[in-house]
């Protein structure tokens, strides 16, 4: 139990420190690296809660794919660091306001807000008992039965976003010679190699 508590405090301290560094680091690449550290510690917290599937998915999806592309973009950008820090004081009040609103909402949820009586039991009834089956299976059992339409809708939203990104960035340039590999490898020998018998010393 003590080890769990120690791990919890370690993960949450590093998580919060890394989150602070994300917004206060001067170099945007360092910010992204701290963001990755924050993701990692969040995954650690998930593991402590017994949600090992979510923890691994967080690492695979966010750290392994999203943050790589993010880092990719940030590294390629030509950033003027001094211009980036210029408007800080001007925008600080707005950012602070958003932060305060979020904090108040969270505290509202935690203290004053009351869930309708019986709602939590309904939610619990749908969930398989955590001790009997691994939580990967438990997730699958509700995700593909009870919530299958919502799941499919989320998939469709992602599909639309993907098609949108492709449509926005795809452009066919004129005058570019493209390689057609299917044509190349289906070319018969007769059309690519010609054996010519030349009489000696006759020249071409």
């Amino acid at each position: 139990m003590i080890i769990q508590a120690l791990a919890f405090y370690l993960f949450s301290t590093v998580l919060i420190a890394a989150a602070v560094m994300v917004i206060s680091a001067r170099n945007p690449v360092h910010s992204v690296l701290f963001l990755i550290l924050a993701f990692f510690n969040a995954a650690g917290l998930f593991v402590l809660m017994g949600a090992e599937f979510l923890a691994m998915i967080l690492v695979v999806v966010y750290v392994g794919a999203v943050a790589v592309l993010f880092l990719f973009v940030v590294m390629m950008l030509d950033i003027d660091f001094s211009a980036l820090r210029q408007g800080f004081l001007r925008y600080a009040p707005i950012g602070g306001l958003v932060g305060i609103v979020l904090l108040v909402e969270l505290m509202w949820m935690a203290t004053v807000w009351a869930v309708a009586p019986g709602a939590s039991e309904v939610g619990v009834a749908r969930m398989p008992a955590a001790a009997q089956i691994p939580n990967t299976q438990a997730l699958g059992l509700v995700l593909y039965t009870r919530y299958v339409y919502v799941f499919q809708a989320a998939g469709l939203v992602l599909l639309v976003a993907m098609i949108g990104a492709i449509v926005l960035t795809l452009r066919q340039r004129e005058g570019v010679r493209r390689q057609d590999i299917a044509r190349q490898i289906s070319r018969p020998r007769e059309r690519s190699v010609e054996l010519v018998k030349m009489p000696p010393r006759a020249g071409v």
């Binding site: 990755i36 090992e52 599937f53 691994m56 998915i57 690492v59 695979v60 750290v63 392994g64 794919a65 790589v68 880092l71 691994p134 939580n135 990967t136």
Partner: peptide
């Protein structure tokens, strides 16, 4: 662990960093 293969997949995808 129950999610061993996901753990391996996650760790191998971090190699790029």
């Amino acid at each position: 662990i129950n999610v061993g293969i996901l753990y391996l997949f996650a760790i191998s995808s971090l190699g790029v960093y």
